[in-house]
């Protein structure tokens, strides 16, 4: 009796119940139930989506994964492959890494480490936040007007500018604000004492940034950049605007530099086109293509999130 009451009073629920006069907290119970329902409906739909896609594409993945990854787009679903889409998505990723990452991190370093508290700085800051909220189709219009039309002589005069160069540049511009915002957050988390110690021993600002601030903020910056890469690889709307296609692709388009100026396609475009095809077999092929895209995108996301959680815990 004595022992039982001791274990009972040690539980916070019991303490709460005693304080509240032992009444059953009906409102609290239903509120909690409601919240749990919201959480589980969301997670349940996510699980359903993954199940729907994997089970839909399983026929293709289990029987002819090799052919599917290396094959070319075709009229019949039974023989269609996605190699051209993987190629386009690969090059888009290269452009984003090579252009958006250095420019975005550079801008973040300026805003966090160099910029004075001036009107110009505030304006740039607000401007970047607004850019991050511009819908992706609008970036497609920008890419079309600038890279496809105005800079056609660079991006691909033979293909009317509708090339993977235009697509890669457009998506690099699209994720640039996200790279800047996430990198700036990582830089802001660096303690000021680290900078002051550097200045105290006579280091210049660039020396402090290069050898103290950047290494400390590195994992945070990497997380943000990988997340924005994943975002770029999954975007379809801007690619439609800059003229991605699933027809008239050159047969031999490989990974050479010259092939950059040819017409292109990418994974999200293949999924979009196939999803609308009524012919038999294309639903399965679409689901299989989605599984391939999800493996790439979700792997990048998961790695980035785990990396961040690990470093957050360490501090």
């Amino acid at each position: 009796m004595n022992a039982a009451s001791r274990t009972l009073t040690s539980s916070p629920e019991i303490v709460r119940a005693r304080l509240q006069g032992r009444r059953f907290d009906a409102a609290g119970f239903f509120f909690r139930l409601l919240l749990l329902a919201a959480m589980f409906v969301t997670l349940g739909l996510l699980a359903l989506l993954l199940f729907d896609v994997v089970s839909g594409g399983w026929g293709v993945i289990s029987t002819r994964l090799g052919d599917f990854l290396t094959g070319k787009l075709g009229i019949t679903a039974a023989r269609a492959g996605i190699s051209q889409g993987l190629r386009g998505t690969f090059f888009i990723g290269v452009f984003v890494v090579a252009i958006a990452f250095p420019l975005g991190v550079g801008a973040a370093i300026y805003l966090e480490e160099y910029a004075p508290h001036s009107r110009l700085t505030r304006f740039i800051d607000v401007n970047i936040r607004n850019l991050a909220g511009v819908p992706s189709v609008v970036y497609g219009l920008l890419g079309f007007a600038i890279f496809v039309k105005a800079l056609r002589f660079v991006t691909g005069p033979e293909s009317n500018g509708a090339t993977v160069i235009s697509a890669g540049l457009t998506l690099a511009v699209l994720v640039l604000p996200i790279v800047i915002i996430t990198s700036a957050e990582a830089l802001r988390a660096v303690p000021d004492s680290l900078r002051e110690a550097g200045f105290g021993v006579g280091a210049t600002r660039w020396e402090v940034v290069r050898s103290h601030v950047l290494p400390y903020a590195g994992p945070g910056i990497l997380t943000g950049t990988v997340l924005s890469l994943a975002r770029a690889l999954g975007e379809a709307a801007p690619l439609i605007l800059v003229g991605a296609t699933t027809g008239y692709l050159s047969e031999g388009a490989g990974y050479s530099l010259a092939s950059l100026q040819e017409r292109f396609t990418a994974m999200p475009i293949i999924i979009y086109t196939w999803a609308g095809r009524p012919q038999p077999g294309f639903q399965e092929a679409t689901a299989a293509a989605i599984v391939v895209l999800l493996v790439v995108v979700l792997l990048a996301n998961t790695v980035a999130i785990l990396l961040r959680n690990r470093y957050e815990k360490r501090r």
Binding site: T42, L46, V53, A230, I290, L293, L294, V297, L298, N301
Partner: peptide
């Protein structure tokens, strides 16, 4: 939840 946020919109369209 963050992974759900990373799912490309074409995939949700198909779903």
């Amino acid at each position: 939840l963050e992974i759900l946020a990373g799912i490309p919109s074409v995939v949700l369209g198909f779903f």
